[in-house]
């Protein structure tokens, strides 16, 4: 275990030295969940993630160290970047799932990892084309609804796999990829609706 840079005492895993109270560097092993003090799981409420983020920020934000020593200011900046990254990743269920899968060694989104399932890819392509071809609001809104329902279903599957160990890794990895397509689809529909309003 590392020692505190300021007083030399053993500092533990906390962001603050238990002996002198000075801010510490994050360990390279600190997970994003640990950065916010959250349990490492898929089922998390958005409100709880936000709350944890605000609490963590309250402790480490550089503004709290504006007049502190340069070392403390530097550490505060580094920890805040970590806390901000944690919030950015964990508040979004799809990114949270990706992060948890990455801990299992599954790299979603890498060129090599992308699915080559033709039927699936064709389906996604067709959905996109349908959006491009649809020009009435009602039709687009229905497609948006469908995409959201599918998103919900995929997330439920990911929760079951990641939190309860039900299902297979490969299916979970595919689900995350599908979620990415759903996101892009929803963005496209939104952009189109925006133009029509």
């Amino acid at each position: 275990m590392a020692d505190c840079w300021s007083c030399g005492a053993e500092r533990g895993v906390d962001f603050f030295c238990p002996t002198c109270g000075k801010i510490q560097a994050a360990s390279p092993k600190t997970t994003l969940f640990e950065a916010l003090g959250l349990p490492a799981r898929m089922r998390l409420e958005r409100g709880d993630v936000d709350k944890a983020f605000r609490e963590a920020s309250r402790n480490v934000h550089p503004d709290r160290f504006a007049q502190a020593a340069p070392m403390e200011r530097k550490l505060a900046l580094q920890l805040t970047e970590l806390v901000n990254q944690a919030h950015q990743t964990l508040r979004d269920p799809r990114r949270r799932a990706e992060y948890l899968l990455k801990a299992e060694g599954v790299e979603v989104g890498h060129d090599q990892a992308r699915t080559r399932d033709r039927a699936f890819l064709m389906e996604m392509l067709e959905l996109q084309e349908r959006v491009d071809e649809t020009s009435e609001v009602a039709g687009l809104e229905q497609m948006l609804k469908d995409a959201k329902a599918r998103t919900k279903h995929l997330l439920a599957g990911l929760e079951a796999y990641l939190d309860d160990g039900v299902g297979e890794q490969a299916v979970a990895a595919r689900a995350v990829e599908e979620l990415r397509y759903m996101e892009r689809l929803a963005e496209r529909i939104d952009a189109k609706l925006e133009e029509m309003y």
Binding site: F53, S57, P62, L77, T80, E81, N84, Q85, H87, Q88
Partner: peptide, 11 residues
Amino acid sequence: LHRNQTIPATA
């Protein structure tokens, strides 16, 4: 780096 991401941020 995405819009509405809290700053300071690094990616």
